[in-house]
């Protein structure tokens, strides 16, 4: 991807008017603060697994799908997403802004500001907070400072400046959660079933390139495939095989969208027996063939891709 990508998503499908900027693969910012209609269309996977992201909603409701869980954010909600979590933005009607940065940047700033509570990566894959309007205003102020910085021309210390603003955000977040540091309103209670599901997702993260059968994951989790499916059904409302295939589809979309790999390379990376099998698998889940998907969504499509 190009280094300072200023294209609004309107370039892709001509209908949206969302501000979107990725800075040197390290920071991603998007918002529709200046849009009046508040219409947000489903977005492609904008950043990869090494990013830590946050979403804040000012008005309306934002529909997301996080690791298979369908989640709706309401005004003054603040969602923090850990790395290696699949977040898909679905069609919504809201005013929101979001900032994502490479995980190490976020963690560094967190540790600088607060050495007492160590940040564990996999404690929760996501944390959902609900703040007051004044607190949300503060986050918006900080976001606007960062937006202004990102839009300036490149200069040697721009990254440091962005990190400083990330630190400000971290301070604001810690301040806002100071009365109850770990009590994010998690959108689900952490039952043992949920723990099993989280472990399932972790395994998917590790093995999705090779194994796509429910039986494999069930065996790793020491349970029957039926039981695993039952757990998935109760947590996210989808069976285990659907969760697996949606996860794989998300990662494939990410690869196609962000990297320069061809369809054949992606299918080999994921150890599909043939490219045609891969194509049919993708079409069954996503609805269009990989080639069509790339045509619709990828600006960097190289004509020589097979």
């Amino acid at each position: 991807m190009s280094t300072a990508n200023t294209q609004a998503l309107s370039d892709i499908n001509g209908r949206q008017n969302i501000f979107f900027k990725m800075y040197h693969e390290r920071h991603v910012m998007s918002d529709n603060l200046e849009q009046k209609s508040g219409v947000v269309e489903a977005q492609e996977p904008i950043y990869d697994q090494s990013f830590c992201a946050m979403f804040i909603v000012l008005q309306g409701s934002l529909n997301l799908c996080v690791n298979g869980l369908d989640l709706t954010l309401h005004p003054n909600d603040y969602l923090v997403v850990m790395p290696c979590t699949n977040v898909e933005v679905k069609a919504s009607r809201c005013i929101f802004f979001s900032h994502a940065a490479q995980a190490h940047i976020i963690f560094d700033q967190y540790e600088e500001v607060n050495c007492n509570i160590p940040m564990t990566k996999r404690a929760f894959s996501l944390r959902l907070y609900h703040f007051s309007s004044t607190q949300t205003e503060r986050f918006k102020e900080i976001y606007l400072i960062m937006k202004r910085e990102v839009l300036r021309d490149d200069y040697p210390m721009k990254e440091n400046s962005l990190r400083a603003i990330t630190k400000l955000n971290m301070v604001a977040l810690l301040e806002a959660t100071s009365d109850a540091p770990m009590s994010a309103v998690v959108p689900y209670p952490m039952t043992s079933q949920r723990q099993v599901f989280e472990r399932f997702i972790e395994l998917l993260d590790t093995y999705y390139t090779h194994e796509r059968s429910v039986q494999f994951y069930a065996k790793r989790l020491n349970m029957s495939a039926k039981y695993l499916s039952m757990i998935s059904q109760s947590i996210v409302g989808k069976s285990a095989s659907v969760v697996i295939s949606q996860y794989v589809a998300f990662r494939v979309k990410q690869l196609l969208y962000r990297s320069q790999l061809s369809i054949k390379q992606v299918s080999e990376m994921l150890n599909f027996p043939t490219q045609s099998f891969f194509g049919r698998y993708f079409k069954r889940i996503v609805g269009c063939s990989p080639r069509q998907y790339m045509k619709q969504n990828c600006r960097n499509l190289n004509a020589s891709h097979s």
Partner: peptide
């Protein structure tokens, strides 16, 4: 943080 922004 603020000083870093200004100095940068």
């Amino acid at each position: 943080a603020y000083l870093c922004i200004i100095y940068s």
